[in-house]
Simulated assay, not measured.
Amino acid sequence: MLELDGLNGWYGASHVLHNVSFSVEQGEIVALVGRNGAGKTSIIRSIMGLMPRTTGTVRFDGKNIEAMKAHQRYAMGLAYVPEERRIVRGLTVLENLQLGLVADRKVIDEARAIEEIAQSFPRLQERLNQEGVTMSGGEQQMLAIARAMIARPKMILLDEPSEGIMPVLVEEMGALFRRLREQGTTLLLVEQNVEWALNLADRAVIVDQGEVVYRSDAATLLADKDIQERYCAV
């Protein structure tokens, strides 16, 4: 579903990603972990076409996409939930969800799409007419995920979805991600809550100082506390 080969990235003169290479298979969850500032967010911004300058190859669903704009990648089925959520002030929950359909060229019955997404997010269904930014942080995170899901993407990039969220919503989120995987949606999950992420994921990739330093199945990394301490401890 996704393959990175020799990906390099820059912010101005700062070379922040160094020959990053890994793949994500269709229908799996891959956890991208490492310390704060390791380069995880820069990797998914590069995948989405949001880094100022990159070199290397990014393939999605069998096609090279490194020359595409972010909205073109979204139209191909690649969705992104940024760490800061970006719920639009002044718009209701329903209107924020409708934004998830604006850039999508597929013909989708909007009413049916809203109904289906509301069934997956009962908390949002109760608040469709409420301004999105007035909800709790956890509910806003759910809205950001729902907005990414509504156009039925093939893959979702998630940046720190559990950050600042109360435990009950984190568990709901984990159950949602498992359902998405069962339905065939592919997930790349950037997460500081390493234990939670590894319990969800099929495979894990560790990034340190902009480089991939470790790859394994998630269960192996979960059991290896020494590697976690070396690369993931805060």
Rank of each mutant, 00 (worst) to 15 (best):
62 G>V: 06
93 V>T: 07
54 T>A: 12
122 P>L: 13
126 E>V: 03
109 D>M: 02
129 N>M: 11
130 Q>H: 07
79 A>F: 08
119 Q>Y: 00
93 V>K: 02
158 L>V: 09
56 G>S: 09
132 G>W: 05
105 R>S: 12
89 R>T: 07
165 I>M: 08
107 V>A: 12
139 E>L: 08
174 G>V: 11
108 I>N: 13
76 M>Y: 05
170 V>C: 11
115 E>W: 00
155 M>F: 13
121 F>W: 01
163 E>D: 13
54 T>H: 08
69 K>Y: 10
110 E>A: 06
109 D>T: 07
60 F>V: 06
62 G>F: 04
53 R>S: 14
146 A>T: 06
93 V>W: 00
163 E>H: 09
58 V>C: 01
125 Q>A: 15
79 A>S: 15
156 I>Q: 01
79 A>E: 03
152 R>V: 12
108 I>G: 13
130 Q>Y: 03
124 L>F: 05
112 R>H: 09
168 V>M: 14
130 Q>I: 00
153 P>Q: 02
93 V>A: 06
47 I>T: 06
169 L>Y: 14
100 G>V: 06
50 L>N: 04
73 R>G: 09
81 V>F: 02
45 R>E: 14
116 E>I: 08
160 E>M: 05
60 F>K: 04
45 R>Q: 13
135 M>Q: 05
48 M>A: 15
73 R>H: 08
109 D>V: 08
75 A>K: 04
148 A>T: 02
151 A>V: 07
153 P>V: 08
90 G>V: 07
83 E>K: 11
123 R>Y: 06
64 N>A: 12
65 I>R: 05
97 L>W: 01
73 R>V: 02
156 I>G: 05
77 G>S: 09
100 G>D: 07
133 V>K: 11
175 A>M: 12
162 S>Q: 05
114 I>R: 10
145 I>K: 00
117 I>N: 00
56 G>A: 14
99 L>G: 12
105 R>G: 14
105 R>K: 07
56 G>F: 15
97 L>R: 00
